[in-house]
Design a protein around this nucleic acid. Structure first.
Lengths: 203, 203
DNA sequence: TTGAAGAGACGAGACGTTTCGTCTTGACAA
DNA sequence: TTGTCAAGACGAAACGTCTCGTCTCTTCAA
């Protein structure tokens, strides 16, 4: 999946081609959805041979994962933001993160691309592993770090499992997004954080 | 989607054929996943003409929704269970429901079928609407009814929105299932309920 | 009361189209 | 010499539409 660093003889891989393919894949999945995305379509639009795609990505899912990753990684300076905000006010910090997430979902391109990736991840266990390791995992780690500091500061139940805490804070909004079961508003996000934290507070 | 009650001339729809198609569709999606499910495959296995499927279902998604619905509906006597348990102990009642959900997910057939449906729902807004109206909505209504009684009994913050409360209690486990981000255990389910209810308790 | 006429469901499968993933070719860069 | 690249041919599979002949069921006139 394009993460090898092997030195070898022969012509080297063209990074511009890789970038073009990923940008095109993102555009296609944003426009037509995951089901509507076709390797042939991406190849044609990117002005690239099909084999050039098949050489580097085993299937649609891997391609879309890389395409989304390329976009979200662009948020931070060298990959991902190194740390979540920490002003000492846990509720405000988590609200800021969740509100930012809600605003990302409001972008139709990002919404459709992420929907495509999520649909693929649900069915494909192998892709789900790659997704966890490269997208969800790092983000979850940041959340856990922030919560751990709060826990050490006595703002959180010291016995609570941090993975559970992350789920309690972030899953309700994520779930609402996948199932389209309600509006996604900044206010709603803040209310979720308030109640979740109340449930996780030190006794 | 087979809910019309129009009287008309001509041969009537055969309920046995409908049942066979839905059972076959469930089996196929359980075995091969949503991406692996093909109308042709269902038709062949069910011993049915393709047109007989296309006549009644516009696409894969609608077919799988009906197939899953047919199964889950079989749980209750005349459709769905009319009410969630209400022993007066809110935490125990909700834990029982969530533990039952976790156990359903442990059935590989049900797991894969529901994964297929969820994958389709994420991408298809129209199918998502049908899913909400026929599967998620009725279940959510039961949950809200149970929570409303608790609210009236003073066990819950009277100002909290019931939809938010449902999400806070049930989304963490659901999210963990879709993303395969952790084990699904009865104990984990009970812990989620405990903390979620603490966050929703009357102040 | 009956029985022909019509409407629509059904199984079977042919049809043109699209996409799949593999493979080949010739140019080109390390 | 080795590997990347664009281009596209290739057979297999599934798509969704259609036509066919058979079968039930309703309607209506005799």
């Amino acid at each position: 999946m394009a993460t090898e660093t092997q030195r070898s003889t022969g012509r080297r891989r063209n990074p511009a081609t890789r970038a073009t393919i990923l940008a095109t894949a993102f555009a296609v999945v944003a426009e037509l959805g995951y089901a509507g995305l076709t390797i042939e379509k991406v190849a044609a639009r990117a002005g690239v041979g099909k084999q050039t795609i098949y050489r580097w990505w085993p299937n649609k899912g891997a391609l879309v994962l890389d395409a989304v990753l390329e976009r979200t990684a662009g948020a931070g300076p060298d990959g991902a933001p190194a740390e979540l905000p920490d002003t000492g006010d846990l509720e405000a910090d988590l609200s800021a993160v969740l509100v930012a997430t809600v605003e990302e979902f409001a972008d139709p391109d990002f919404d459709r691309a992420l929907r495509g990736l999520t649909a693929a991840v649900i069915e494909d266990a192998e892709l789900a592993l790659a997704y966890r390791e490269r997208l969800d995992g790092p983000m979850r780690e940041l959340k856990k770090r922030r919560l751990r500091r709060a826990q050490e500061a006595g703002q959180l139940d010291p016995d609570v499992d941090l993975d559970l805490a992350v789920d309690l804070v972030f899953a309700p909004i994520a779930q609402r997004w996948t199932e389209r079961s309600g509006d996604l508003t900044p206010d709603g996000a803040r209310t979720v954080v308030r109640h979740a934290l109340r449930g996780l507070a030190a006794p």
